[in-house]
Simulated scan of single mutants.
Amino acid sequence: MESHQSPIASTLKHLAVFLLVAIWTLPTLGLLVSSVRDKDQLSTTGWWSALTSTTQNEAYRLPRAGEQQPDGDGWKIELNIFEDNQGAKVGQWGTSPRAIDEHEAGDTVDFDDNTRLTLAEDGTVTWTSETEFTHTRGPRLFVVQTTPPRFTLTNYKEVLQSEGVGRAFINTLTVTLPATFIPILIAAFAAYALAWMEFKGRMFFLAMIIGLIVVPLQMSLIPVLQVFASIGQAFNVPSKSYVTIWLAHTGFGLPLAIFLLRNYMASLPRDIIESAYMDGATHFQIFMRMILPLSMPALASFTIFQFLWTWNDLLVAAVFLGQGESKTVMTQQLVELLGSRGDNWEILTAGAFISIVVPIIVFLSMQKYFVRGLLAGSVKGG
């Protein structure tokens, strides 16, 4: 009997899916928009206002008398206060912070020293006098200015051209690729043994692996580091190296990998496995020719998980890889680019988006293998 879903339930289901997608998509969209915004606008307004003009109060000091030029029978000082802020417009202005809206753009004001000042909407200041200017310190103008949305790739250029970023990218790949492949290789063999091979203590080993999943990574950092230090002293090898961090990521990732792959392999149809046994196939042949192709969905899922974890890791890299130009990963490099105050938001947004490009490519690429493996592992029951 076929069950028909009510319109209300279907609407609620689609609404829930939409909300989940929005919750995961909006932060990424905000990061992308922020990464291409102007530095000043990024520090004052949120990314959701990126397409609207911003209004803010600014103070500008006029030049000294030494920058005056002859103008007919008089003298003139002329400049544009928006030289570094192209596209901005003057709304209102004044000569005192208490009367910032005293004049409108384009108004001409006569001062007590027989000088006249005009501030145009585009920020052009024309200050004229019948006699030569003699002031040593120019007065200040207080302006209510409107700045249109500005988008730029300067943030990305600054990150990519920063010293050490390219090397950090290579270092991150050097850490991530082996730290993803090694635990998957070991876990696949171990999962097959726990799922399909009969030996004493199998359930005990499985229980131990499940117990290791709940052990916090932070609790094991110092003991594992002490073990590596002892091995390094015994064999006169560095205790912090790429081999060290590969082994650390492998150890931290194996319990979950074995557990997930074992559960998936154990759920595969027993009939085809037993048929292969009866045909004389060895465990290795069954594993390579049957189990691995049928387990592609689980393998692809853990590959995505492990790659994202190792690529975005900072703690394990800092503890087991150490410092130095040849060891700094992307996460550490971004922290250094932020500086001691951590207020360079434009660097953070651009650098963060650059760092997630590779995981996105890996995720989209593994989706294809995930679907292919899912279709290959489907079995039609008779």
Score class of each variant (00 low, 15 high):
residue 3 S to H: 11
residue 3 S to L: 09
residue 5 Q to H: 13
residue 6 S to M: 08
residue 10 S to A: 12
residue 11 T to L: 13
residue 17 V to N: 01
residue 18 F to T: 10
residue 19 L to P: 04
residue 22 A to G: 07
residue 23 I to D: 03
residue 29 L to F: 14
residue 33 V to K: 04
residue 35 S to G: 01
residue 36 V to P: 06
residue 41 Q to C: 01
residue 49 S to L: 11
residue 54 T to S: 15
residue 55 T to K: 05
residue 58 E to P: 00
residue 63 P to H: 03
residue 63 P to C: 01
residue 64 R to V: 09
residue 67 E to F: 12
residue 73 D to A: 14
residue 75 W to P: 04
residue 77 I to T: 01
residue 85 N to R: 14
residue 89 K to P: 07
residue 91 G to Y: 01
residue 93 W to F: 15
residue 100 I to T: 10
residue 101 D to V: 09
residue 107 D to F: 11
residue 110 D to T: 14
residue 111 F to V: 02
residue 115 T to C: 06
residue 115 T to L: 06
residue 117 L to S: 02
residue 118 T to V: 08
residue 124 T to M: 08
residue 126 T to C: 10
residue 127 W to Y: 12
residue 131 T to L: 10
residue 136 T to C: 04
residue 137 R to L: 10
residue 141 L to Q: 01
residue 141 L to D: 04
residue 144 V to P: 00
residue 146 T to G: 01
residue 154 T to W: 02
residue 157 K to H: 05
residue 157 K to S: 13
residue 157 K to Q: 13
residue 157 K to A: 11
residue 160 L to H: 03
residue 163 E to C: 02
residue 172 T to I: 07
residue 173 L to V: 14
residue 179 A to G: 09
residue 181 F to W: 12
residue 187 A to S: 13
residue 191 A to D: 01
residue 192 Y to C: 03
residue 198 E to M: 08
residue 201 G to M: 11
residue 204 F to L: 14
residue 205 F to A: 13
residue 205 F to L: 15
residue 211 G to T: 05
residue 219 M to R: 03
residue 233 Q to R: 15
residue 234 A to T: 13
residue 239 S to V: 06
residue 242 Y to R: 10
residue 243 V to K: 06
residue 249 H to A: 12
residue 252 F to Q: 07
residue 258 I to V: 15
residue 259 F to V: 02
residue 263 N to E: 14
residue 269 P to M: 12
residue 270 R to T: 10
residue 273 I to G: 02
residue 275 S to M: 14
residue 276 A to L: 08
residue 277 Y to M: 04
residue 283 H to G: 00
residue 287 F to E: 00
residue 291 I to Y: 04
residue 291 I to N: 00
residue 292 L to S: 00
residue 292 L to E: 03
residue 296 M to R: 11
residue 299 L to F: 04
residue 301 S to F: 14
residue 309 W to F: 14
residue 311 W to H: 08
residue 312 N to Q: 13
residue 313 D to G: 01
residue 316 V to Y: 00
residue 317 A to Q: 02
residue 321 L to E: 05
residue 321 L to Q: 05
residue 329 V to S: 00
residue 330 M to T: 03
residue 333 Q to C: 00
residue 334 L to E: 01
residue 336 E to L: 11
residue 339 G to V: 05
residue 341 R to P: 05
residue 343 D to V: 12
residue 344 N to R: 15
residue 344 N to V: 09
residue 345 W to N: 05
residue 347 I to T: 09
residue 347 I to V: 11
residue 349 T to L: 12
residue 350 A to W: 10
residue 353 F to L: 12
residue 353 F to A: 03
residue 356 I to Q: 07
residue 358 V to F: 12
residue 358 V to Y: 06
residue 359 P to G: 02
residue 365 S to K: 05
residue 365 S to I: 07
residue 367 Q to M: 12
residue 367 Q to E: 15
residue 371 V to R: 10
residue 372 R to V: 06
residue 374 L to Y: 15
residue 374 L to Q: 14
residue 375 L to N: 12
residue 382 G to K: 10
